[in-house]
Design a protein around this nucleic acid. Structure first.
Length: 493
RNA sequence: GAGCCCGUAGCUCAGCCGGUAGAGCAACUGACUUUUAAUCAGUAGGUCUCGGGUUCGAAUCCCGACGGGCUCACCA
């Protein structure tokens, strides 16, 4: 009896441990260094696409991957690498006797290297006739069932490595996410914008209305916030003239509830471009998202959850008040703060202590309009009191030059003409401080240094933020944000 | 934070108006040897998430905890 069995280890793992020991007794290192492979599965499939069934080539290749299936006692092996599948044929006609004996020590899940000649079987499967098998990594745990795979949602997220091995859709989604970020970066760099990195650890939270995570720096004996947004630092770089357009693609952290559309850490693009206003940012949004859809799905018409969404530019621009009036018959622009509050409450809104006219309008919008904006729509006319970093609308002091782009009822982009008047900015911060004192713990505190930066002169600029996780959900038709995050936040088990 | 639902073998699932568990795949033993969800015969594998309660008896009913999903609230 092996140690494993004696220790009460699960018998499936014990069997594999015994095979591991058997390999070692044969003088085989089950975890050797490297393997000089010549080809990936997909490359072979492509190169030998014209090879007729039943034909042998005599071309020797070396492939490597994970055993996903063993048939006929190991005579046929499905070997999967990152590019695809290649079949391995282990027959005594090609393999020495002692190699054939080693087949008994192989398990589904093992990573092996194979040298052999390429052929296509009479049944049409591209195959490597193995002349040598090399154990590259012995797997001690069994893989999930071959047909249904791993469908337990919790296990898929907790053990993403298993999910990725057995579920091609999971691999595809995360690869598309990578592609989205790469294409986004390339598209922005091609337009001359500078990619930068700004602090994750903030002494003062700012840049968004959200609850932060707090951490502590020991040497400085200082509480720090994980950033809720990079906005204020990016605009400082614009003040400094580092470039006329700067962007950052990076993580933000918000200490809020989890849901199929919220993960405590998420990735956003934020970009600030000097000498343009929010209208230009609409065009940028349309251009960027259209390009990404094209790159990832091959077109600008996508399908999400059975809904067809047309991303072809231009997208309609509608003001928040107009949309709310259309949906409810209530013209918030004709109401004062008290009237708006009453109207929003009548629609079912629960408004906090410090809620003003803008909060009421926004609540009405969220309750009655948001979900209906399935096709891309730029929503403009945002209230000033919920937009402390946006430039006022010259035509209506209650509003700012801001828009949010809604797709499938979700806020996908948020942009404005950035407020660069340091005196106005200080007033806005002070209003936020009052809201904070009144109980709004998401109101943004005054960032004295940011105001100082504005006093040196921030060029007029447009800013834009896009949530990459939700965008990826849309472009990959993923029902949960956890599907597009490799390791979503989970409660420890 | 609230409501609803879920948790049975490594995986996918049956069993759930109470009588202490089954299948397929995976594993093991053997057969077969051009298969591809290989096939055939056999074997083994379970604190039924955990803790209480009701009961002669609980996977099953009740309560609580833990973990997960969805919805709502907060938010992107």
């Amino acid at each position: 009896m092996s140690d494993a069995v004696r220790d009460g280890e699960d018998p499936l793992r014990a069997a594999r441990r015994q095979k591991l020991e058997a390999l070692r007794e044969l003088g085989i290192d089950p975890y050797p260094v490297g393997f000089a492979r010549t080809d990936e599965a997909a490359a072979l499939e492509q190169r030998y696409a014209g090879l007729p069934a039943g034909e042998e080539t005599g071309d020797t290749v070396r492939v490597a991957g994970r055993i996903r299936a063993l048939r006929n006692s190991g005579m046929f092996i499905d070997l999967h690498d990152a590019s695809g599948k290649i079949q391995v044929f282990s027959h005594k006609d090609h393999l020495p006797h002692d190699e054939i004996a080693k087949l008994r020590l192989l398990d589904i899940g093992d990573v092996i290297g194979v040298e052999g000649q390429v052929r296509r079987t009479p049944r049409g499967e591209l195959t490597v006739n193995a002349t040598a098998l090399t154990m590259l990594s012995k797997a001690l745990r069994p893989l999930p069932e071959k047909y249904h795979g791993l469908s337990d949602i919790e296990l898929r997220y907790r053990q993403r490595y298993v999910d990725l091995i057995v579920n091609p859709e999971s691999r595809d989604t995360l690869r598309r996410r990578s592609r989205i970020v790469a294409e986004m970066r390339a598209w922005l760099l091609a337009r001359g914008y500078l990619e930068v990195e700004t602090p994750m650890l903030h002494a003062i939270q700012g840049g968004a209305s959200a609850k932060p995570f707090v951490t502590h720096h020991n040497a400085l004996d200082l509480d720090l916030y994980l950033r809720v947004a990079p906005e204020l630092h990016l605009k400082r770089l614009l003040v400094g003239g580092l470039a006329d357009g700067v962007f950052e693609i990076n993580r933000c952290f918000r200490n809020e509830g989890l849901s199929p559309r919220h993960n405590p850490e998420f990735t956003s693009l934020e970009i600030y471009i000097a000498y343009v206003g929010y209208i230009e940012m609409m065009r940028l949004t349309e251009g960027l998202l259209g390009h990404l859809a094209q790159a990832v799905t091959g077109g600008t018409t996508i399908s999400y959850g059975g809904t067809t969404i047309d991303l072809a530019a231009p997208w309609p621009r509608r003001s928040m008040a107009e949309l709310v009036e259309q949906a409810t018959g209530i013209d918030f622009l004709a109401l004062d703060a008290a009237g708006a509050r009453k109207a929003a409450s009548a629609l079912g809104a629960t408004l906090g202590a410090g809620a003003g006219w803008g909060h009421s309008l926004e609540s009405a919008f969220a309750l009655r309009v948001e979900d209906s904006l399935l096709q891309p729509t730029h929503v403009t006319g945002f209230p000033r009191d919920i937009s402390p970093l946006a430039k006022a609308d010259p035509a209506d002091p209650r509003l700012v030059e801001r828009f949010e782009t809604y797709i499938y009822g979700w806020e996908i982009a948020n942009a404005f003409s950035e407020l660069n008047d340091p005196i106005d900015q200080r007033d806005r911060f002070e209003a936020q401080m009052q809201a904070r004192a009144a109980g709004d713990d998401e109101a943004q505190p005054l960032d004295e240094d940011y105001v100082t930066a504005l006093e040196y002169g921030l060029p007029p600029c447009g800013g834009l933020g896009i949530g990459i996780d939700r965008l990826t959900m849309l472009l990959t038709d993923s029902p949960s944000i956890r599907d597009v995050i490799a390791f979503p936040t989970m409660r420890p088990r």
